[in-house]
Design a protein around this nucleic acid. Sequence first.
DNA 1: AAAGTTTACAACCGCGAGAGT
DNA 2: TACTCTCGCGGTTGTAAACTT
Length: 369
Amino acid sequence: MGHGHHTCCNKQKVKRGLWSPEEDEKLIRHITAYGHGCWSAVPRLAGLQRCGKSCRLRWINYLRPDLKRGSFSPQEAALIIDLHNILGNKWAQIAKHLPGRTDNEVKNFWNSSIKKKLMAQNLSDMAAVSSDLASISNLTNSRSTFQGFCSINQNSNLIQTAQMDQIYIPAAQNNPPPPGFDQVNFNTSLLPGLPSFPISSLDSSAYDLPPAWTPSEYQQPQLIDHQQQFIKQEETSMFITGGAAPTQFSNQLPLMGAYEDTSVINGMPKLGEMTNGNDYGMCSSSALQVLEPVSASGFSGFHSGLYASDMQVPAVSHIQFIQSLMSAFNSSSSFSSSSSSSPSLSMSPLPCSGPFLLNPNQPSSWVNP
DNA sequence: AAAGTTTACAACCGCGAGAGT
DNA sequence: TACTCTCGCGGTTGTAAACTT
């Protein structure tokens, strides 16, 4: 009996490894004639020296007639990136939204292709951000209330903030920080209470969202006056921020708008504008390049594709999102720091693991009641 | 051209959930 | 309740093909 083989396989000797065309034909012939029924019975009935589990896998991942096969389209890749941003490594749930694709296929595609592209893109974005730090800082000063980071704990309390001008982002791994910078960890957890604006721009009902991000937590946009004005004013523009989707890498929230446009609409910062949202992972908008790496401690993925320029709902949702954060800021007494007595917190500002460095020469804006 | 390395993806493994007994 | 069986999932490994040196 084999070591570590599944219990269904340990009675008789079973073949392992790649399937031969003859085996495939036997399995296809059996299942098309009789269905698979109980998988553990399939190998005996089909005349295969395989375990039922292997038969099931071969059928589901390779022989099923409704499989699409072939390389992934850019649209499929963009969808995978967005869904992964929302769902994490829930490959089966992601695959449900890609007809003809299996969870195994999606997982392999992610691990072999997308992940590397996103990491490479993130590095180059960081370089761009670093080179633009001065101009960012100038604009940051004009509305520093919004420019920065926060982390939100499980109780929706804002526990950490830092202003943009306190943060240094290394352009590359071998780029040493300026003198006086110390690394700071933005160790965060997901926020259950706030509207989830990246999701809201999609059809939320189409996704298997984690409980904290279900549509019930999200208030549908209502077109009150200033929102209508906002949409009218922006017309065909689209609005994007990065990194606020829950990912396994980061759940920090960018609180800033596009740095190239400091206009404020009804007391709220204008959000980033992106014009080429069609090419997955390759968005060249300066706003995105700034927001994405700044908002991610690892990388948070890229919002593209689905955020087409004719989608105006996200703008409304973003306003609600910013409003929520602003109201949170304006009632800082309700915040707790990472050193608070909240027993549900297991986070600490140190030691650090992210790519951010804190500038101790700048006045601290860390919320610390 | 051969050897070495990387990539793509097929297949395996262990685990947990759920149903049945 | 405890046990077994089956199924499905996600992480991981194995390997043929493609690519590089």
